[in-house]
């Protein structure tokens, strides 16, 4: 199983950055969003390749099934 990490940085002005590492697909957002609900207002978000990785795998699987 890939290493799943969560990195939380709280700067000296109190701003919190939540990074998920190694969590593929929408679950990474669920984890990060739970901290938004806990703390306050979301200011920005950035989704990187891993977020889309799992979704692409699901789509490929569906395409293969349709061929047969």
């Amino acid at each position: 199983m890939a290493q799943e990490e969560l990195e939380i940085e709280i700067d000296k002005f109190g701003k919190v950055t939540v990074k998920t590492i190694g969590i593929k697909g929408p679950r990474c957002l669920e984890v990060a969003e739970s901290f938004v609900q806990l703390l306050g207002q979301e200011e920005s978000r950035e989704l990187t390749n891993e977020y889309y990785e799992a979704e692409q795998q699901v789509r490929s699987h569906i395409d293969i099934k349709r061929k047969y």
């Binding site: 919190v16 990474c28 306050g40 200011e43």
Partner: peptide
């Protein structure tokens, strides 16, 4: 890295 969210605490 999968996602980065910045939160302003209330």
């Amino acid at each position: 890295m999968s996602s980065v969210i910045v939160v302003a605490p209330i």
